[in-house]
Nucleic acid binder design. Structure first.
Length: 268
DNA sequence: CAAACTCCCTGTTAGC
DNA sequence: TGCTAACAGGGAGTTT
């Protein structure tokens, strides 16, 4: 499940291989992967574009283009999407949904088993990214900022942290990891979290994401991430001992999402 | 208006 | 062994 660190790892991988290349042809193998476009129009509008830059905003991979009809190609990997750059001679894989062929004989493959991923071809970034909240690793994200985001909101802390309009890029894994690190129970009412605890949460989010990026994210062996080596402390570890206190990690459901926590360390 | 539900998908796994 | 049904999960949309 690609979240901010996995998307960042993908951006670095892709940027190294496609910046400076020109798109010779486009193949759409699953029409619904392409948002707001008919496959033929998408192909025509994208072909001939030159790739100037690849960067990340929230969980979106942003590819800046020139020389074509539109300025940006955005990619959201959702559940099972991944990007690969390989020789154009390779045959199309069963789960390839869109392939961009470059003039240099290589190609960018958008592989996505569950078909939830999306590509957006737009003139301005904001057409897609406008609703997104603060970048958690930017200077704009401060303890005071987090306090104003959560203190003003009603509801429980985990759903708020998952909301991309509040903080952009956190997902199920790193929310659980950050809450564990800050010793906050995921069901805690956000407005009731003390200022000290919010400072701990702010630090936990940044440390968790930074560590995960350094390790290129989490690899679940599903091919989504290229060799990420982050090892979650609670996520996916139900029944294993909490590395802080030894109590068994529990799994509950919050906002229809599997949620992992240490009930001894994390108090409501 | 927060929270729960539904849908989109398919590989994996539990259950029989 | 082999089949079926349940399940997971990001995000958008709908209902309670």
């Amino acid at each position: 499940m690609p979240e901010l660190p996995e998307v960042e790892a993908t951006v670095r991988y892709v940027a190294e291989r496609v910046v400076g290349e020109r798109i010779a042809d486009v193949q759409v193998l699953w029409a619904r992967t392409v948002a707001r476009y008919e496959p033929a129009d998408f192909q025509r509008s994208l072909a001939g574009s030159h790739i100037d830059e690849v960067f990340r905003r929230g969980k979106y991979i942003c590819i800046r283009l020139s020389g074509g009809e539109r300025g940006y190609l955005l990619v959201h990997l959702r559940m099972s999407g991944s990007l690969d750059v390989i020789s154009s001679a390779n045959p199309v894989d069963t789960h390839d949904r869109v392939v961009l062929y470059f003039e240099n004989g290589r190609s960018l493959r958008f592989n996505d088993t569950r078909k939830f991923g999306r590509m957006y071809l737009v003139s301005a970034l904001e057409e897609v990214t406008a609703p997104l909240g603060v970048e958690p690793l930017s200077e704009d994200f401060t303890p005071e900022n987090l306090r104003s985001l959560l203190g003003a909101a009603r509801g429980r802390v985990k759903p708020l942290l998952l909301d991309q309009g509040v903080i952009a890029g956190l997902g199920n894994i790193y929310v659980d990891e950050s809450l564990w690190k800050a010793r906050i129970h995921p069901l805690t009412e956000a407005r009731r979290i003390s200022a000290a605890r919010l400072r701990a949460l702010h630090r936990a989010i940044r440390e968790t994401l930074t560590e995960a990026i350094e390790l290129l994210g989490t690899d679940f062996g599903d091919g989504v991430v290229h060799g990420g080596s982050y090892r979650p402390r609670v996520y996916g570890r139900e029944g294993e001992p909490c590395e802080r206190c030894g109590a068994p990690i529990q799994r509950i459901v919050v906002a229809q999402r599997g949620t992992h926590l240490c009930v001894r360390c994390q108090v409501v």
